[in-house]
Structures are given as C-alpha cells and as structure tokens.
Nucleic acid binder design. Structure first.
Length: 565
RNA sequence: GCGCCCGUAGCUCAGCUGGAUAGAGCAUCGGCCUUCUAAGCCGACGGUCCCAGGUUCGAAUCCUGGCGGGCGCGCCA
C-alpha cells in the first residue's frame, strides 16, 4: 500500500530533521491536480521547528525517495506548505489487482483481539407494530454492527424486550376492552390504552379462539391470557417485520428475566453497598448527581415497586459481565435523559465512566408531494415500518434511513424513494453494479485477470476511479470509528456516480476507444480487470449496508405478459 | 429556566485530526441522445457556512455569548 510507504519514508526523514510527530496525517486531496496523496506535516511542525512551513516542506520533498520503491513518481510543495505525492501509474493500477485478489474481503480488517462489542437496538416494547423510529433504529443498529464487523470487531446484536412493565399491563387492559366490545358489551378503552387497529384485531382473534368465556373474569385469569396472547402476537409481528427488513439479532433479552433471575435484587444490594443510596418521602433514591446527573433518581417507589431505572442498570451489568466491555446503545434522542442516570448507576457499581456508549438518533418524518404525511393519532394508527417497506421496498427503506447522520432529523421523501431511476441513490448503486456484471457476462464470463497489463488503465477517468475504489477500506474504518453509516451511503453514491460516468464515457456508440470490450486484447483484459474490481467493491459496499447487489435489474415496464391483462 | 442535538446552495443534506478554489443529490436552465440492456448523457447557474466576538500561519470545523428549531427535564417507560 503506497500510503504506508509514504508514511514510513516521511517518518524517517522527519526523524533526521529532529522532529517526530506522534502521527503523520495523509489525505486524499479533492483536487486530482494535487496528486494521489497529500500531507500537512510541514505545517503542523512549523511552530516546533520554528521555520516556515514551505521551507520545511521543500526540505522533505528534496529528501523524499521517489521511484519504484515507494511508488511515488513525484513530490511537490503546494499552497501554504502541503506536500503532494503523485504516484506512478503502476502504483495506482496495482490496486485493481489487490481488489481482485482480496475479493469479498476487500475492505475487511483482520479480527482484532479487542473486547467484543454489544450493539443494542430497536428494543421496542411488544405493545404495537414497529414504527418509523424503530425502522431507523433497525437500519442504523444493523449497519453499525456490520461496519464494526468489517472494521475487525467481534460484534453481537441484541434486542431488549421491556416485557415486565406497566405498558404491558396497559396493553392487556386495552385488549380486554376490545374483547368486550367485540361481543357488543360496553367497556371503554382505558384512558392511556392503546388505540391502534392491531389491538382490535388481536382482541378479535382472541375472541375467536376463546369465545365468550372471559366476559366474566373475576379472578383475572382471562386478562392474564389476553396479556400473553397479545405479547406473543405482537412479538411475532415485530419479528416478521424485522426479518423482512433483513435484520437478525443474536439475542433477545427479556426484561422479565432480570426479575426472575434475581438480577434486579442483586443490583439493589450492590447499589446499597455503594453508600449512595438514601430514603426520602418513603422512596429509595440513588445519588446519581455524584456522577454528573442533573438530579438524584428514585430507584424504588414508595409503593415498593422498582422504577424502570433499576432493571435498566441490571441489564447493563449483565452486558458487562458477559464480557461486552464495549457496548453501544442505539436509541431515539427522546431517551437521552436516561443516558446520564444509567451511566451513573453503573458507575456506582464500579463500572467505568462512559459505559455504555450511545448513538442517539432524531425523529423521522415522511413527505409526499412536498407535504408531510400525517397520520391519525386519535385512532392510534401510525405509519409503520411495514407500510414503508411495502411501498418502496426493503433496500430503499434501509438506505434512506441510513443516509443521514443519526443526530439529524430525517425527512423521508416518498416520491424520491419510489423513483426507480438513477436519481434514487439506491438504484443508482444497483444499476452501476448490474451494468458491470452485464459487461462481464458479455465478455464471456471468464474471471477478470489480476495479471492483466493494468498500467494500460492510465486515462484520467480510470485513474481517479481506481483511486476511489481503493479508498473503500479507509471508508470502512472511518465510518466505523465515527459510528456513522451515512458516510458509507455518501461514499457508495459517489462511487456509483463515478462508475456510471466511466461506463457512459466508454459508450461504444460514441466513444468506441473507451469501451471495455475493445478489440485490443491487452487493453480489453486490463479494462475487464477494472470492471471486475468495480463489481467487487460495489458488492462489498452494498453488502456492508445490508443491501442486495443484483447482477441484473428487471425493467419495471417489462410487464409484457402476453395474453394477460 | 436547565440539559442534549441541529442550523451550510431554492429544497434535502455531506464536509475526516482545523488545511488548498466549501461539495453532492434534487429542482431550474442550456445542449445532446437511445444505450458494452437498464427508465438517459454532458454542462451551466446557484453560498453572509444563523449572528457577534475569540483562539492561530490557517476556522463551516475549536472556545464564549446570542438568535432560531427539535427533544428531554415524573415515585411514567
């Protein structure tokens, strides 16, 4: 890798100059005139060496070993003191061979021995269908987990079910009301009940299965059955949606298990031992302000029951004890108030500061025709993840949820999402992939040859395209480090755009010399190798984001069913 | 009132550790065109990076103070 050679050559030179910066920053300049790599070391060292940046840069440039050894053809000093490195054509085009050789592993780092990471996401209560916030979270958590895997981490995906709280009780009471209504009885929905259609449907199913026998339910046994029935049904619905969405979890963790296994109790004892627990107004409090929380928190209410804070802390203790010394929670930013208190509770138990890490995302709104799509809150129905996937497909939904940084509000434009042309970044990327697959098929399907005369790929457009393909591993690293899947979306769209431009540039009807399938066998082999490398990188990038990489695309208007319709 | 997040082109948004002339997509406008199958291709227009100070060789980026928007501030989850 040329950048490694540049970096090590630089550090040797700098050492001789009496300066050894902790790290040497190399970047890919935006402007191709600035070469393939650039460094600002001369500028950062100006003050310590007490000389002008340009002077330092000149000295480095003069000492820099160009030639086959480093792959650097020339070094120039530019602007305020940048060092611009221009690679030899050979050094650039070698990337194509590397990509072909590494194939499905190109961009993937070797697995490190760092602590495994637990990514917790979605964690919806089983009280309704998954809404758009859950959808964004499903896409984000899954892509983030995938990014971390590509970056060499051991990763586990987990879903935490709040199946023990008041919300479940409300659900049961709501089903009960709908059950009575189903049989024409008067029973109003509880004030804070769930109004959604799905609840009525579940009540109807229950009525179908169990008949009228629970209309009289003095012991509450019927209510208990309804609770179980509804939770099971809703979990099944959520699982169905998550499967359709292509999200798999390694584990579903039930809140109720924290109670049945005594973890909540253990947590209470642990907190009491911390000496930060006190009683006030009949409740038990934890002095979370000790660790930067805005106010102290109640852990046991005056009626003797736990607040949700307690199982939350207990749950995170299990994460730590299960060896996940790195944990990332993907949550809606409306929950950011819980961050400080959970961390405080964990610190009181001796866990390190800043555990767990949070990725908080903003809300999602949907627009059609430039207008926000409103849904009726009154009848409890809302736009669901399922609605979106039914309308524009799984991959588009995933991508649109990922394309904005988590902390920014997301506008889901349905018109744009439904567009199947290159204007839609998802289709743009898929078409680019399908196009290169098509060329490879047309070429006879033989495997692209990494030993082709790659130095023939010397045109500006090809050189820049290869540079872009070669930046994929850095993209993975950066996006993982920043917990930022949207960077991968940007990168994919940009790369697909470059691929498409290259493809159109080589349109045989207009520019036969630029086509892949030219007559000259050497050039043809070199371009086929590049085509193969494009396929590898696009496929890897799509896979990274959990999207399909189709080898061919069907025309929407190929509904040419003869005899039908 | 306090805390967190956001404010960049008409719209939706990127912008790496502070770096070179601030970038995409959409929309608009102007050409071209029917493809190595793919609902097009090429180009142009478009900026007070919310405001005001500060830090320094250099600020969209860091600091302080405002302004505007979102969210949160329960013995609810």
């Amino acid at each position: 890798m040329p950048q490694e050679q540049i970096r090590s050559s630089l550090s040797v030179i700098l050492e001789e100059m009496g300066a050894s910066p902790p790290s040497i920053h190399l970047e890919r300049p935006k402007d191709p005139d600035h070469g393939e790599w650039a460094s600002n070391v001369a500028m950062t060292l100006a003050s310590t060496l007490r000389r002008s940046p340009r002077q330092i840069a000149e000295e480095i440039a003069a000492a820099f070993p160009t030639g086959a050894q480093t792959g650097v053809a020339s070094v120039e000093v530019a602007g305020p003191g940048f060092l611009n490195f221009r690679l030899s054509t050979d050094a650039v085009t070698r990337t194509v061979a590397t990509i072909l050789e590494e194939d499905a592993d190109f961009g993937r780092q070797a697995v490190s021995d760092e602590a495994p990471v637990l990514v917790e996401f979605v964690s919806a209560n089983p009280t309704g269908l998954l809404h758009l916030g859950h959808g964004r979270q499903a896409a984000l958590g899954d892509a983030l987990a995938s990014l971390l895997e590509w970056a060499g981490n051991r990763v586990s995906r987990e879903f935490y079910y709040n199946d023990a709280g008041r919300q479940i009780e409300r659900l049961a009471l709501s089903v009960q009301a709908r059950y009575h209504q189903h049989f024409g009885r008067e029973m109003p929905l509880p004030e804070d009940g769930y109004r959604g259609r799905i609840v009525s449907e579940i009540a109807a199913e229950f009525a179908e299965a169990e008949g009228e026998r629970w209309l009289d339910d003095p012991e509450g046994a019927g209510l208990e059955r309804m609770r179980e029935f509804a939770v099971t049904r809703l979990r099944a619905e959520q699982d169905l949606d998550l499967n359709t969405f292509g999200v798999r979890f390694d584990r579903y963790f039930l809140e109720s298990s924290l109670y049945t296994e005594g973890r909540v109790e253990t947590t209470v004892e642990g907190l009491r031992e911390s000496g930060l627990v006190y009683e006030k107004d009949g409740a038990v409090w934890l002095r979370t302000t000790e660790f930067g929380d805005q106010k102290d928190r109640v852990m046991i209410k005056s009626d003797g029951s736990a607040t949700y804070f307690l199982p939350d802390v207990a749950y995170h203790v299990t994460k730590w004890e299960r060896g996940f010394h790195r944990a990332i929670n993907v949550q809606g930013s409306d929950h950011h108030g819980t961050v400080d208190r959970v961390r405080a509770g964990l610190r009181a138990l001796g866990l390190p500061e800043g555990y767990p890490e949070y990725v908080l995302h903003q809300m999602v709104t949907v627009e059609r025709g430039g207008e926000e799509v409103k849904f009726s809150k009154r009848d409890g129905d809302y736009l669901t993840l399922r609605d979106l996937v039914d309308e524009v497909g799984r991959d588009v939904t995933r991508y649109f949820f990922l394309m904005r940084k988590p902390e920014a509000h997301l506008v889901f434009d349905l018109d744009w999402a439904a567009d199947e042309s290159d204007k839609n970044p998802v289709y743009k990327a898929k078409y680019a992939h399908a196009r290169v697959c098509s060329i490879l098929r047309k070429a006879g399907g033989a495997a692209p040859d990494p030993d082709a005369s790659l130095e023939l790929l010397s045109s500006e457009i090809e050189r820049e395209l290869i540079q872009q393909l070669g930046s994929f591993p850095e993209l993975v690293e950066r996006a993982a480090a920043h917990r930022a899947p949207h960077l991968a979306c940007d990168w994919l769209e940009h790369t697909a755009g470059q691929v498409n431009a290259w493809y159109h540039h080589g349109n045989p009807a207009r520019n036969p010399g630029g086509a892949v399938l030219v007559d000259d066998p050497d050039l043809r082999a070199a371009r086929l190798a590049l085509t193969g490398a494009i396929r590898v990188v696009l496929r890897n990038a799509l896979t990274l984001l959990g999207l399909d990489a189709p080898e061919r695309m069907e025309r929407a208007e190929s509904d040419d069913e003869p005899g039908e319709g």
